[in-house]
Design a protein around this nucleic acid. Structure first.
Length: 414
RNA sequence: GUGAUUGUAGCUCAGUUGGUUAGAGCGCCUGAUUGUGGUUCAGGAGGCCGCGGGUUCAAAUCCCGUCUUUCACCCCA
């Protein structure tokens, strides 16, 4: 709380115990599950050439235009900190030749976006995401969504909703934009200010405007899907059918808009009510990204760890549940016992025991209090008497019982 | 980028119309006869009142700036 000259940056926070226990659970469960699905971990640099993001996410998107940490380094090179994970991943895979066109990778990494912080939005935030490259195939998309659902389940998250839609093939973009514009034209004067601007810049944004008046108008006009080629709609249907076979329910929402340029065909979003205005905990879709000679097709998703954590908390899942517990606490009475206990602690720790002790000469009462506070299950007491006899007193903190035991036996049974 | 909002002890917060040594609860430390925790009781330590300016005899309190917190818009995970 103490604000100082050397405080951390706005929207960037330090993560420590107990909260960190939840982070570790999330990461551990993710790695386990990704292994089951045959995904390998990929760690890409935080910094990339600015062009990587411009080219893949899109030059005109808000993410690139107003949210990135972009700067020139000492050599005048234009760089940016990754605002999302797909671009860097595909930049890597695009350089892997044949192998990169049929890969399954996942990442757990920090992302950076220079926006004003608010609920569920940090300037440094963290995502766990996957990418599976390969030619468009509805089954691949369905499997990716299945993986995502399994992931949320593995974390114990309940109450999330999945919405799905399609952006159609690239060739559908123009007809969709034209079609929507034409349909909206008669209502132009009734749209909100933003939408009057958006109708030219990015019609799709009009579709998901939260303004009530705009929403009503949008309900009256045909959905974007109706301006797409038949094959594009069939592709979405195939994904939905495959999901149904796996027992995964989705809500089709033609108004779902995903802003990044690289998406084609299937797009989806997971929302959770716990979150407030930023209610998406995960988003994904099929894409096509040209960062090399050949465009890399693939499908993937990313989950926001911070947002998952707030959602988990409303499910009653807390960090404390994953806190390390129990262990042994050593109590030393006198300097000799203290020195000997240092040795004992080392031996116990070498055998994998969680073991703590006071390193200063404190009263027994103080040491016992600390042992209790640290949640020790067992306390080992050593004073001059025990030292002389080669024994220790072993106390069970739960029921308060204690007995004198041979030091060797204690180490052997640890 | 726009509009609100916050900052006082380790934590959660009081602090009257500007006025003397800035408070509480929890936590922490020490004790309640020699080497035994979680309960109780007694005592104690601990504060650049976010930071920098200004007004005033006098500022935690009023004014300006700045950083930060939280929230919304925009957009996204």
């Amino acid at each position: 709380m103490a604000a100082s000259e050397f405080q951390s940056l706005q929207g960037m926070s330090d993560i420590r115990a107990p909260e960190i226990y939840l982070w570790r659970m999330i990461e551990d469960e993710a790695r386990k599950l990704f292994n089951c699905y045959g995904y390998e971990e990929l760690r890409t640099p935080v910094l990339e050439k600015l062009s990587v993001f411009k080219r893949s996410i899109g030059d005109t998107t808000d993410v690139v235009q107003k949210e990135m940490y972009a700067f020139k380094d000492r050599g005048g090179r234009e760089l940016a900190m990754c605002p999302e994970g797909t671009a860097g991943t595909i930049r890597h895979l695009a350089g892997c030749g044949e192998e990169g066109l049929n890969a399954r990778v996942f990442y757990i990494a920090p992302m950076f976006r220079c926006e004003r912080p608010q609920a569920g939005r940090k300037r440094q935030f963290h995502q766990v995401g996957v990418e599976a490259t390969g030619e468009p195939n509805p089954l691949a998309d369905a499997e990716c969504i299945a993986l995502q659902q399994n992931l949320l389940e593995a974390w114990g998250l309940v109450g999330s909703k999945i919405q799905i839609s399609t952006r159609g093939a690239r060739s559908d973009r123009q007809p969709v934009a034209d079609g929507l514009r034409e349909a909206l034209q008669p209502h132009l004067n009734n749209l909100c200010e933003d939408c009057q601007r958006r109708i030219d810049e990015n019609v799709l944004r009009v579709i998901d405007c939260k303004n009530e008046g705009c929403a009503k108008i949008v309900d009256q006009i045909p959905s974007a899907l109706e301006f797409m080629a038949e094959e594009s709609r069939q592709y979405l249907d195939a994904v939905i059918q495959a999901l149904e076979k796996m027992g995964i329910e989705v809500e089709v929402n033609p108004k779902l808009v995903r802003g990044l340029d690289y998406y084609v065909h299937t797009v989806w979003e997971i929302t959770h009510d716990a979150l407030g205005a930023q209610n998406a905990i995960a988003g994904g879709g099929r894409y096509e990204i040209a960062l090399g000679k050949k465009a890399v097709p693939g499908v993937g998703f990313a989950v926001g760890i911070e947002r998952v954590i707030t959602s988990l908390e409303t499910c009653g899942i807390t960090a404390e549940q994953f806190a390390p517990k129990g262990g042994i606490w050593l109590i030393s009475l006198g300097e000799d016992a203290l020195a000997e206990n240092m040795k004992l602690a080392r031996q116990l720790r070498e055998k994998g025991n969680r073991c703590g002790m006071e390193l200063a000469d404190k009263s027994m009462k103080a040491q016992m209090r600390k042992a209790n506070r640290e949640g020790a299950e067992i306390v080992i007491i050593r004073g001059e008497d025990e030292l002389a006899k080669g024994t220790v007193v072993v106390k069970d903190m739960e029921d308060g019982s204690q007995e004198e035991m041979n030091l060797e036996d204690v180490i052997r049974n640890a």
